[in-house]
Structure formats: structure tokens, C-alpha cells
């Protein structure tokens, strides 16, 4: 059991101050922006909740919000099962295990704009292996002009980029299962599926919730990779929420609406993450 000791605050204080400095001041500023019409440094007017009304009824934002949910949903549906499957296939010991770990970590360590660049090149029909091969096989593929192709490319890129994270997390969860469980299963002659369903999956629950939470938050905020790959096109087909927001804030310099919208954005992520977090800690308690 943990001991009740409020002096522990002294140990947490540096973290609190450091994060508060970078988090609270900008957050307050965004709230301030969201209720004003700002022309320049000294000319600004209080407009109340007008910006909120405007962004909540803006169809362009509804569209990109919908796209964002579809995208995050697809990402979770593909990456979580695939990550589990890969984790189950990973070797458990020896030199191969380290090697596989290292190879799998590579995509995670590439700067996000380089990830975009890699796939931008790889998917092109003239100089990229994937685009060229697909076209040689008779499949008309062009991520820059076809909506479906653009979506598939962005999704494949995200799977390439992030499935390893899910797999590594699940791998660590699997390693935590004591051998006794497997021995018991062997004695019972349980099938591989039964072992997975009744031993591995329950033990993976808490790690999976971390993975789902991280993947949801990050895919919901995705910006750099699709920006480099497709620039949001063709049309607005792959313009996700972050990009719409950045266009508003920096492209059109509509600070007020952008700020109001970003708070709505933050609230959505906050609610979903809180639900995940509550489920996760609740799960810990009952265990």
C-alpha cells in the first residue's frame, strides 16, 4: 500500500512548474484569443461566444472532423489487431529478439516530415517503387489525383509508421506473463486460439489501453505526414483537423476562430482520453 504523505509534492514540484509554464500560459492565451476579434497587437474587440458559434456551425470543420474520426477509427482498427499479431510472432529470446526490436523501432525514430518524404517518393509512379510497381501491374494508382489512392497511401504510411509502437507495447505485455500460465495451458492441451483468448488477451488489456490511447491521441492530431505527402489533397480529401486549424490560424490569420476551434478540438480529445483513462485505471482497481 502507498503511504499518505503530502510532502511528496516537493518531489513533484519541478515537473509541475516546468509543465505548467509551457502548458498553462499558452492555454490561457488561446482562451483569450477565442473571445476576441484581433486585428493587430493593439486593436482587438471582445466578441463573446461569436467565434464558437461560427466554428460549431462551419460545414468545412464538420467535414474535416468527420474525416478525422474516420481516419482515427481506421488507424485503430488496422494497427491494434496487426500490432497484436506481430507481437505474438516476435521471437522471445536470443540475438534475433534484439535485432527484431531494433528493426521495428526504426520507423518510430524517423522525423515525421521525413516519413512523409519517404512515402511521397515511394508512391510516385515515376521514381517510386510502389507507385511504379502498381502501375506496371495495370492498377492506375496516383495518390496526388485520386481520392481513394490518397487515403490508402496516408493509411499505409500511418500503419508503416506506428504499428511497431503497438507491437512493442504488446510484446512487453506478453513478456510479463509468467511461464506457469503457458505450462498449465499445455497440460490442458489448449489450442493456440484458447491460449490467446483466455491467457494472453486478458493480460494485454492494460497495455492495450495505453496503446489505444496513444494511437488515438496521435492519429487525431496528425499533421506533418499527410501535409508533406498529399498537402491535404486532392481537393480537401486528406485535410485532417490539425491542418484545417493551421490553415485558419497561420494561413488566414483568423486567430479568434482558430483559437475557439482549437479549444473545441482539445475538449474532444480530453473527453475521449478521459474515458480511456478511466477505463484503464478502473481496470487496474478491479484486478
Amino acid at each position: 500500500m502507498k503511504v499518505q504523505n503530502n510532502k511528496a509534492w516537493w518531489l513533484v514540484l519541478p515537473v509541475f512548474l516546468l509543465v505548467a509554464f509551457s502548458a498553462i500560459v499558452p492555454m490561457m492565451t488561446v482562451v483569450n484569443y477565442s473571445v476576441q476579434d484581433i486585428f493587430d497587437h493593439s486593436t482587438r474587440y471582445f466578441v463573446g461566444v461569436d467565434w464558437y458559434k461560427q466554428v460549431l456551425q462551419d460545414t468545412r470543420l464538420h467535414d474535416s472532423l468527420l474525416r478525422q474520426f474516420i481516419f482515427s477509427g481506421c488507424v485503430l482498427l488496422i494497427e491494434i489487431p496487426l500490432g497484436i499479431a506481430i507481437a505474438l510472432c516476435m521471437p522471445t529470446k536470443g540475438r534475433m529478439a534484439s535485432l527484431v526490436l531494433i528493426v521495428m523501432a526504426i520507423p518510430l525514430l524517423i522525423p515525421w516530415n521525413v516519413v512523409g518524404t519517404i512515402w511521397q517518393i515511394f508512391g510516385r509512379a515515376d521514381i517510386g517503387l510502389m507507385g511504379w510497381t502498381l502501375n506496371e501491374l495495370g492498377i492506375a494508382y496516383n495518390y496526388a489525383s485520386d481520392t481513394g489512392d490518397a487515403w490508402v497511401t496516408v493509411l499505409i504510411m500511418d500503419v508503416w509508421h506506428w504499428t511497431s509502437l503497438v507491437a512493442l507495447l504488446c510484446y512487453s505485455g506478453l513478456r510479463a506473463i509468467p511461464d506457469v500460465y503457458y505450462q498449465a495451458a499445455r497440460i490442458d492441451r489448449a489450442s493456440a486460439w484458447a491460449v490467446f483468448r483466455h491467457i494472453q488477451l486478458p493480460k494485454l488489456k492494460s497495455v492495450l489501453l495505453i496503446a489505444v490511447m496513444l494511437r488515438f491521441m496521435d492519429s487525431f492530431m496528425i499533421y506533418t505526414e499527410p501535409f508533406v505527402l498529399t498537402g491535404g489533397g486532392p481537393g480537401n480529401a486528406t485535410t485532417f483537423l490539425s491542418q484545417t486549424l493551421t490553415q485558419m490560424a497561420i494561413g488566414q490569420f483568423d486567430l479568434g476562430p482558430a483559437a475557439a476551434f482549437s479549444l473545441v478540438y482539445f475538449l474532444i480529445i480530453l473527453l475521449v482520453s478521459w474515458l480511456f483513462y478511466t477505463a484503464m485505471t478502473h481496470n487496474d482497481k478491479t484486478r
Binding site: M27, L255, S262, Y265
Partner: peptide, 10 residues
């Protein structure tokens, strides 16, 4: 969870 795009200017 705070989308970085939002906080760039502040």
C-alpha cells in the same frame, strides 16, 4: 493531447 498546431502562436 493539446494539438500543437493550436499552441504555435502562443
Amino acid at each position: 493531447m493539446a494539438p500543437p498546431a493550436v499552441f504555435l502562436l502562443p
